[in-house]
């Protein structure tokens, strides 16, 4: 199934050094602007942040908006990936 689809393009935002709620607002702004492409699975939002609050607020808000969210802890920051919701991504 995946082979039929295009690999989604990343929208990268580096928010390191910035705190909530500015980080959240920027993330929401991107989700609003790229809404159609992300919902179609053509794009994914990839956020780098070192603010602990952001790793709660961004995923909660994105999920409320109907997206699927993955948070991965990297060496010195967190990477939050927001993508289209599919039944598989729920797992």
């Amino acid at each position: 199934m995946m082979s039929d689809q295009k690999i989604p393009e990343n929208i990268d935002i580096d928010m390191r050094g910035q705190v909530c709620p500015a980080t959240l607002l920027v993330a929401m702004d991107k989700l609003n602007k790229h809404r159609d492409a992300i919902k179609k699975g053509l794009e994914e939002l990839c956020i780098k942040t070192d603010n602990r609050e952001a790793i709660t607020t961004i995923p909660t808000t994105a999920r409320n908006m109907g997206y699927s969210v993955n948070v991965t802890q990297m060496d010195s920051f967190y990477q939050i990936v927001v993508r289209n919701f599919t039944p598989e991504s729920k797992k």
Binding site: V19, C20, L24, L31
Partner: peptide, 28 residues
């Protein structure tokens, strides 16, 4: 939305107006 308030030093008035948080939140 579930987050803390904006600190005035975080965004000056001009940037605030330019960023349009209300628009962003409304859209969200």
């Amino acid at each position: 939305i579930g987050t803390i308030p904006l600190r005035p030093e975080e965004l000056d008035d001009a940037t605030l107006i330019n960023l349009d948080p209300i628009g962003i939140i409304a859209e969200s």
